[in-house]
Design a binder for these strands. Sequence first.
DNA 1: CATGAATGAGACTTCATTCAT
DNA 2: AATGAATGAAGTCTCATTCAT
Lengths: 213, 213, 213, 213
Amino acid sequence: MTQVNAKLAKLNRVERNAWTKQNIFEAATKVVGKHGYAEASVARITEQAGVAQGTFYNHFENRQELLDQLLPKIGLDMVEFIRARTGTADAARQEISRFSAFFDFIREVPEFLRILNEAEFFAPIGYQKHLDNISVAYVRILRRARAAGAIHDYSDEEFEAIVHMLMGARGYLSRRYSYSADGVTAVPEHVISAYRKLMTRGLFNASGDQDTP
Amino acid sequence: MTQVNAKLAKLNRVERNAWTKQNIFEAATKVVGKHGYAEASVARITEQAGVAQGTFYNHFENRQELLDQLLPKIGLDMVEFIRARTGTADAARQEISRFSAFFDFIREVPEFLRILNEAEFFAPIGYQKHLDNISVAYVRILRRARAAGAIHDYSDEEFEAIVHMLMGARGYLSRRYSYSADGVTAVPEHVISAYRKLMTRGLFNASGDQDTP
Amino acid sequence: MTQVNAKLAKLNRVERNAWTKQNIFEAATKVVGKHGYAEASVARITEQAGVAQGTFYNHFENRQELLDQLLPKIGLDMVEFIRARTGTADAARQEISRFSAFFDFIREVPEFLRILNEAEFFAPIGYQKHLDNISVAYVRILRRARAAGAIHDYSDEEFEAIVHMLMGARGYLSRRYSYSADGVTAVPEHVISAYRKLMTRGLFNASGDQDTP
Amino acid sequence: MTQVNAKLAKLNRVERNAWTKQNIFEAATKVVGKHGYAEASVARITEQAGVAQGTFYNHFENRQELLDQLLPKIGLDMVEFIRARTGTADAARQEISRFSAFFDFIREVPEFLRILNEAEFFAPIGYQKHLDNISVAYVRILRRARAAGAIHDYSDEEFEAIVHMLMGARGYLSRRYSYSADGVTAVPEHVISAYRKLMTRGLFNASGDQDTP
DNA sequence: CATGAATGAGACTTCATTCAT
DNA sequence: AATGAATGAAGTCTCATTCAT
């Protein structure tokens, strides 16, 4: 057996291990996305993954540990997704884009909605991690907009509160307008226009508000 | 046994029946408020109420039925509480009052926060009922403000979206700023000022915004 | 329904409850006696008792609590059994009687052997309770013998050590000579004579030693 | 590859093999001594040894086989330790020395106590082997004492019973007086004096009893 | 011979609900 | 209507052992 083969064999072993973990992870994403955290028993997850229950505990300390990893991981995908769609327009239009892109992401990754919404109660550690990830980045964006003159008269503390309002609003709206029996539908146009008006008039210096040219 | 006695006995029985149900109801409020829906087992609720487990099922079809009644009932108390504190100032200032009063209410009735926040996942039917109660009333308020000239340029559909944003924002903020180890604390001033700015500039015709007199 | 009937009905309920608990208790005695504590799973015990697993937890906090009650309870039966067989001879002969009666009891209640011997590791709380029960009573007996002039030259502390030796010796011997494939057999005569010699010469004033008249 | 190299390599392999087995063995001794047989999972033992779980099964048929080897091996160390400390005094004094040396040994090798005491239930085969080792040797000692005139009036069968009593007494006393939160402490003087009195008066011809010179 | 992931049986415990009294 | 013991399904997790690499 050559060194290459030995290396390959070793790699294969490590890879196989990683594959199994990823496999369980994806199974959990599907199960939680479809049935919610409460119904995501280890039995259900491992069945979906096609492995034995005991295998689960070779890769995760316990059920909760996995659940707490779900949201932060997908949350980063979301951040990347939104960033890629934000463009280089003025700050207000960018914010509308982010708002829209959020709902696009929900349709792209339908599991995300439940994973996000239920996390607060079923995966509080993961939820907090996600919250920090998002709000820090969001406040930074608002600060830049303020530095660029696109926002007046908001303090850093107020930014933080605003960000929480925006996140809360999105969550609520997503539950209200995007859920459906099975599957996620697009958010209606009037939701976006309402958001645009509230933001461009309330937060930004009105440049993105089509209705007040 | 006279007819009077019979009637009295019957009345007593009915009263006692109602009292027991109310007793269980209040016990559930305490338990859910303190430990959350997930920990609100029938055993725990009946123990808190001082009745046997079996008694529970003489008054409620099943555990879920009770849980789903919790939020709508307290929700109405909240509506009344906020209405009483709203005053007769202009529409924008009234909205700020409502926002403030909401946070006052959760300090008045500390159980409300958990009952509200967790309801979406643990008592979805009750949650929906509450949602309808609130949003219908809220949209009506906004329509009146619009009719009175305090709001321009928002359609009815957009109102509905706005209301959901406001409710989402409140929920989020309440979880972020009002929870604490044991007990509920006041929401910081900068949260209220941020809300005021966003609302007076974004939704109303700016009259309530102290910063733009 | 007369008061008597009502009382009977109520008693029946209480009695039935006590019966179930006793039922589980006896099932546990059988299972532990036959297969040992380690194999005495709740499933096995409840199956033996003919009740559902859940029923177990209506009567015992957890598995360990029951296991820890086993030995002390049977231990008291043993004390009574031995006391009834001790007679009124001189102190040395009484001690030989107790030694003999212990082995008689083992044959009377074959489960006792495992319940006693394994308790130290599988039911340490119950074991300690039993230990205290026994050693306190035993030391008292030795003190009386000393007061009556049947024992010389042993201090209270030494009595305690002696008692532990006696108990240890019995345990060891019982395991060695009384166990058998399935069932408990009589202890051979030479074990008793060895014990008699050791005791009458070593502890007592030799009156009970047939070989030195 | 030269023959020398081949031989070296082979030797190394054998040595390495022996070393690994010894390594696992010592790890098991530590684990059982500290946490008891019940907690001595293969995972824990191999972790302590710094080898993979699978490696275990290259050296032992199964978990039980290893556990059953533990006591007999250390038991022989004990025999040697006691023999070295027994001296050449008269038979009764020698017996007291052995009794004392036993307690010295459990302080020297603190793991021994648990390995010995729990073995009866968790490693019955090893326990039996140990029992045979000890009792055969002990009976031989007593026979010699009898031949030398230090013991009268005990038959061989009675010797066997006596030995079991002595061993049982030691086990019991060691558990009672030598265990402590963490570590093993010396046995109190009054335990030794009680033993001396019982033995010198009950078994031997009283020469070792200081109190009856 | 070493590795360590995979297996799956089985353990304890919880809990909503039923039902005879 | 009140009681509370009985039920049994379901959940999480452990662990000795196997086997492909």
